[in-house]
């Protein structure tokens, strides 16, 4: 599809970008004297679209072709697969754990897991759903089935991005995978997980090789961090040494930084994807801010936890 076919969608997104929260908006929200004032300010400043479902609906309406954009929802899709699988095994209501927007409906996932007929799921999910269900029911190892699903989500993102040949999405998938892999390798090194588990949990990407990460994780936490320091992810190591929360923030920030590369583009699907990422970061910031305000966290800590803004 020609990039100029997204001319209308990109222009609409540029117009919507002017409604994104700015640094001064966030400062004002943090600086509000009372929680009620924060809420009122937030209500006045947050413009439409206000939820990720609305963002997705809007982008879908504008985009002449949303196939590439669907990659952005893969993680939600696989999260929902995990949620439905766990809910099913523990006899809970899956709808309570389902997050949207998603490419796959709750009904389709439920149907697939109940009937064990996975054809109703998208091709990128079928194998993972079948294998995760098998592991979860046979071994009752929820951690392993979760890791397998997470790994499958990252692999599916990279595979789809490669298939579409979209450089922006390929980098997005690689960065997301690298961050998730570092997190997994770090946790596994802390828990001294065996190679067999690591092989199922770490995905690998063009950013960080799978075998490199497995070996590094097997060498212990300090070994992993020192080996990662020699890569382009040395900043991530500093964050991990500070706190896992700082690392999470760093991961979110590099994704927004990557989205910023599409800000100058006048055509193509990239500005749409960048807007989705920007809005996700904005809503995450507001969620963190409100939780911190409710807990009475001091302003400096809230400022420190705020994710990078797109605007």
């Amino acid at each position: 599809m020609s990039a100029t076919e997204f001319a209308s969608a990109v222009a609409a997104v540029k117009a919507m970008e002017s409604g994104l929260l700015t640094h001064s908006d966030i400062e004002q929200l943090i600086g509000a004297s009372a929680l009620s004032e924060t809420r009122t300010l937030m209500e006045s400043k947050l413009s439409f679209p206000r939820t990720m479902e609305e963002v997705w609906e809007l982008l879908n309406g504008y985009a002449p072709d949303n196939e590439v954009l669907k990659i952005l929802l893969y993680r939600n899709d696989f999260h929902n697969l995990k949620a439905v699988l766990k809910a099913k095994l523990s006899g809970r209501e899956p709808a309570d754990y389902y997050i949207s927007p998603s490419n796959v409906s709750l009904h389709d996932i439920e149907q697939a897991l109940t009937s064990k007929e996975y054809d109703g799921l998208p091709a990128y999910m079928r194998e993972a759903a079948e294998e995760a269900y098998d592991i979860a029911t046979r071994t009752l190892d929820g951690q392993l089935s979760d890791s397998l699903i997470d790994q499958a989500a990252l692999a599916a993102m990279q595979r789809s991005a490669d298939e579409y040949g979209n450089a922006f999405m390929m980098r997005f998938a690689a960065l997301t995978t690298a961050c998730a892999d570092i997190k997994t390798a770090y946790r596994c090194s802390l828990m001294q997980k065996p190679r067999q588990f690591l092989e199922r949990a770490i995905c690998g990407s063009t950013e960080l090789d799978k075998e490199f990460l497995i070996r590094a994780a097997l060498s212990g936490t300090e070994g992993l961090l020192s080996q990662l320091e020699a890569t382009s992810y040395n900043e991530a190591v500093q964050m991990l040494r500070e706190s896992p929360a700082q690392f999470e923030k760093w991961c979110d920030d590099i994704i927004v930084e990557h989205a910023e590369s599409a800000r100058m583009q006048a055509f193509g699907v990239e500005p749409l994807a960048a807007y989705y990422i920007a809005k996700e970061a904005e809503l995450k910031n507001l969620r963190i801010l409100m939780i911190c305000r409710e807990c009475g966290t001091d302003r400096d800590t809230i400022t420190e936890r705020m994710r990078k803004l797109y605007v």
Binding site: A7, S8, V10, A11, A12, K14, A15, M16, Y62
Partner: peptide, 10 residues
């Protein structure tokens, strides 16, 4: 096309 996209929002 671009103009229509903008006008649809503003």
């Amino acid at each position: 096309e671009s103009a229509a996209g903008v006008v649809s929002v503003d």
